[in-house]
């Protein structure tokens, strides 16, 4: 099952072309890594996939779960099964993490004709996931991302991932700003999430996250295109040679 297919994707932000023709296919059961230097268009790609305002596809196609995304809103794409892990998760003062998670899971359930989740089941599930991510239950009562450390913010993203169980997780720099311990916790969460039914795309600057997560494919992105694809070995080459050498390949 194809979860994501990009064919010749060209996209711009504020009329400036950032993505210059991207082809990529992610099937169920696969974990991909997209690596690239700053400014290569990695974050733009995640925003374009999510359908964010201001990001315009000018050429090519995007298909999510086999359906073209043309005309689909941000929330429709999310409910189809696309999950974006944010590089800089935004704060929402006044809204507790718990409320936010409940509304999010209920939105997903309602979209497939199910009832809202019973509060008790919800609590049990959220507490279980929090425990696995080494987050205290106190954390659930705090406002979304307000006063969270960098590591807490990223673990909170993984908590949402594990609760919402999307078909395709597109995680933008989930490893940035994490110390080794937090990195391991985050990697553990992603490893628990991955299965034969879903797919993961790790967008990252560095190879180090890949020490903890086995990836099937690595793509090198430079100047808005994928210049090279390979297996996990490619990530080690990047580490050894830097992006500059690969960009010419």
């Amino acid at each position: 099952m194809k979860l994501l297919e990009l064919r010749g994707l060209v996209a711009s932000v504020d009329e400036k072309q950032i993505l210059n023709g991207i082809d990529l296919t992610v099937n169920a059961g696969e974990v991909h890594a997209i690596m690239g230097p700053n400014g290569s268009g990695k974050s733009t790609l995640s925003n374009v996939l999510a359908g964010r305002d201001g990001y315009t596809v000018t050429e090519g196609d995007i298909e999510l779960m086999g359906t073209p995304v043309n005309g689909m809103s941000v929330e429709e794409r999310a409910l189809t099964g696309l999950f974006l892990g944010f590089q800089h998760p935004i704060e929402i003062p006044g809204v507790t993490n718990m409320e936010f998670l409940k509304v999010a899971i209920d939105s997903h359930r309602i979209s497939i004709g199910e009832e809202e989740m019973n509060t008790r089941d919800f609590m049990v599930q959220v507490r279980d996931i929090s425990k696995r991510l080494e987050l205290s239950t106190e954390f659930l009562k705090r406002f979304v991302n307000v006063g969270f450390s960098g590591g807490e913010k990223k673990r909170n993203e993984i908590l949402q991932l594990m609760l919402l169980r999307p078909r395709l997780a597109f995680l933008d720099e989930t490893d940035s700003g994490l110390d080794v311990d937090a990195l391991q916790v985050v990697a553990k969460g992603i490893n628990e999430f991955r299965s034969g039914d879903n797919g993961v795309v790790l967008v990252t600057h560095y190879q180090r996250l890949l020490n903890y997560i086995d990836v099937d494919f690595v793509h090198i992105m430079v100047n808005g295109t994928i210049v090279k694809s390979g297996d996990a070995q490619l990530a080690h080459e990047v580490e050894a040679q830097g992006y500059a050498g690969l960009g010419k390949a």
């Binding site: 999510a50 964010r52 305002d53 809103s73 941000v74 929330e75 999310a78 409910l79 999950f83 974006l84 944010f86 998760p89 935004i90 704060e91 929402i92 003062p93 006044g94 809204v95 507790t96 409320e99 936010f100 509304v103 999010a104 939105s107 997903h108 979209s111 406002f143 949402q160 919402l164």
Partner: peptide, 24 residues
């Protein structure tokens, strides 16, 4: 940015605003 986060989690914009306002 707040609305984008909410919508990306499947929460429609009006519901997201209501949630933020209720929190406020």
């Amino acid at each position: 940015d707040q609305l984008f986060l909410c919508r990306q989690r499947g929460i429609d914009a009006e519901k997201a605003v209501a949630m933020i306002v209720n929190g406020f």
